[in-house]
Design a protein around this nucleic acid. Structure first.
Lengths: 156, 156
DNA sequence: AAACAATCATTGACATTTTCAACTATCCAT
DNA sequence: ATGGATAGTTGAAAATGTCAATGATTGTTT
């Protein structure tokens, strides 16, 4: 997702409108701006935000099924197929048959995939630091906490 | 944007992965979930998130040009054309030629548009309240403040 | 144990959205 | 006045999102 905004650095004139305080718009804009940064950070590794997410989860040890990936990443199952196809083609992940449920396919990382992930993770962390540079350490933590809470209704 | 997540109510198993703390993913998921709520809230008025944003700004008195709308909403100028076309066709906004710059077109609301906006705004506020129901008043305010700060680097 | 509905991954079709390049009209700087 | 940039518009191409159908497998009901 690209950003056409040339003036993301300071509050534009229109931010004064009531909509400048809408959570929906704030989320959309910050998400769009962040996506640009993230995808730019990942381009060296041939990854994009989504394939990075899948790779990360494949490396997590949680042994996610494709269905779980779809649910967690808010994607259609068919989109997960495409993402895993690509990562598997590049030798970064593998599909293994589910133990309890043989319909399910668990996506696990290869050694290659874990090496790739380590490097990509560093780039992503730098990008996030960049995006939130204007916030203090406490503010960044608080922002994440609030996002998680709003999303999952966990006390945190 | 639709959400395929069936378990948005509580933290899913995969949230334990390192990615469950990534701002990018948190923004993407909360934005996606919010879009569903917002678009559902607007369907009665024949609006969607984006046309509502354009209508709001047309009603703001700020007299935005289409270029400003594109920048502010992180849209391609051609997408703004489509949105304004539709709103104008329905008699909710009008294009008026810019005063200083005759290339520019300022998007202003009609009386009809303002009535529509008032009703839609109420529905949107309710949707936002719903989405952030789990947060306290202070937390909601703080979340918005942090989003605005990260986005526009205003002290706030 | 046979039949049933439900679920997982996959495919392919279709719709929507994004991105981009061209074009006209207008602006601004020299 | 000329030339280069910008605003809006159009249309085409690429990327993404959505959805229905399928085969394999599961759990459930008779």
């Amino acid at each position: 997702m690209a950003v056409h905004n040339k003036e993301a650095v300071e509050a534009p004139r229109l931010a004064a409108a009531s909509i400048g305080n809408d959570v929906g718009l704030l989320l959309a804009k910050l998400h769009a701006a962040g996506s640009v940064l993230n995808n730019r950070a990942l381009v060296d590794y041939g990854l994009r935000e989504r394939s990075f997410s899948v790779l990360t989860l494949a490396c997590s040890g949680l042994e996610p099924t494709q269905r779980e990936l779809a649910d967690f990443l808010s994607l259609d199952p068919s989109q997960v197929v495409t993402l895993v196809d690509e990562l598997e083609r590049r030798g970064l992940v593998q599909r293994v048959q589910g133990k309890q449920d043989r319909r399910a396919k668990i996506v696990v990382s290869t050694a290659e995939g874990r090496k790739m992930h380590t490097k990509a993770r560093a780039a992503m962390d730098a990008a996030e630091l960049d995006q939130l540079a204007v916030l203090s350490e406490e503010e960044s933590k608080e922002l994440k906490r609030l996002l998680r809470k709003a999303l999952w209704r966990t006390p945190v």
